[in-house]
Amino acid sequence: MTESLPRSDDMEAAASGATLLDVAVSVDYFGRQAAVREVRFSMERGEILGLIGESGSGKSTLAMAILGLLSFRGGKARGEIRLQGRDLLALPEREMRQVRGRAIGFVPQSPLAALNPTLRLDGHFREAWRAHRPDRNGWREVLPDLLRRVQLPREAEFLRQYPRQLSVGLAQRVLIALALLHNPRLIIADEPTSALDAITQSGVLSLLAGLNRDLQTSILFISHDLVSVARLSHRVAILLHGELVEQGPAVEVFGNPQHVYTRQLMATLLVNPLLRR
């Protein structure tokens, strides 16, 4: 069922033959210039790109820039962000809103805080559905498949719960389901596992890997945890103080780190993460 939903921009993308995402941006915040400096990278269809960087290096800033949400944080992006050839930075807000949630899904860092405390779970799905679909109740049809995919209970009682009644792990699965609702090309997951305990973390990582495998959904996987990135990503990019210092296939970067910083990062680990793949 989920597979059969038409993906927006599929035809266009096929025609242009462009890469999925092409980024070349700098970001200034009000009161903090150049939080991100001339960061360039691109992603292909079906690819998982791991974005690594310590806290404050500009990872979330990049994610917000791609989603066009910087302005709400007092930031401004310069440059180009092309999604299947379309420059998102040039899009008017009305059209950008169509991209968010529909072409790009977003999975946040703290799942419990990212759910509206006054809204039951079904309300979240209803609202997310209404954002892009005129039919009010279509979500009820896609939901069972979606819940099964993210391994959430499908009972009506579950959906009648309020967010505060959920565990962090369940909440994160709900957010992944919400991100998948419109079957987007790309999912941006901003440290989706850092709030989770090791076992839950592992479950979520497998879930993301499964999505990528089954649905060909590209994932921009943001983390400061080298191990998770190494486990999931096809390619990795290393962000330091707002600049990309190194990027390439995971095997290359972890196998033969070029930049001093990457080497330092690797040194903090007891075991080369590649060995755990």
């Binding site: 809103r97 977003f106 946040p108 809204l119 954002a131």
Partner: peptide, 23 residues
């Protein structure tokens, strides 16, 4: 976070105001 998340879902400003804020 939940307002940010709702925005990332592409919700319309009016629904955001009513559902995320006023609620």
């Amino acid at each position: 976070d939940f307002v940010m998340q709702a925005k990332a879902n592409g919700r319309s400003p009016m629904r955001l105001l009513l559902v995320e804020i006023v609620r």
